[in-house]
Amino acid sequence: MSRDFYTSSILPYAAIIIKICRAYTNTQEDFEDYYQEVCLQIWKSRDNFREQSKWSTWVYRLSLNVCLTLLKKKKNSHQQFASDSLIQEEIEEGHQFVDESLNQLYDAIKQLSEIDRGVILLYLEEKSYQEIADIIDTNPNNIGVRIKRIKERLKKLLYGKVN
């Protein structure tokens, strides 16, 4: 991957990649691994970008897909080889943001289903319902209801923590 490609095509979207990767990982090591994998997949798949959507939409979609794939692989590998104590250890060693409220919000987001995590991240990034639907490949009519339900769940999870 050339420095130019990274600087011009990935770095402007690094924030959303970071936010997505954080939502699907529990350790700094995993986060860095996911981030690197997303960047690599963007670079490797760059020729598949057909300009039918915006580059940013394509980056979001790819980031989510990579994270979901890695998460699935990790789950399978844990099922095969790791014990529950190892998973617990990873959660305890989780990375933290400076802002405590943000940490609590992330903890709540991580309790959502994998797809709902993607939806709420895109919503919080102020993507339109149409864009969110394009990225997660679903009907835009359902997005509004889904976001409402996710927000209610998050409020429930955060209630008493954030004041």
């Binding site: 991957m1 990274y6 770095l11 690094a14 924030a15 990649i17 970071i18 936010k19 986060f31 860095e32 981030y35 690197q36 960047c39 690599l40 943001f97 400076v98 802002d99 409220s101 943000l102 609590q104 919000l105 709420i120 919080l124 927000k151 998050l154 409020k155 955060l158 209630y159 954030v162 004041n163």
Partner: peptide, 26 residues
């Protein structure tokens, strides 16, 4: 009680909240 939107916006305004990892050991 803060809205999740404001937690999100304010949280990422803090310094070092969005540090991209280095790609030196891919």
């Amino acid at each position: 009680e803060k809205s999740i939107e404001s937690i999100w916006k304010e949280g990422f305004l803090k310094k070092d909240a969005l540090v991209a990892p280095k790609l030196n050991n891919l």
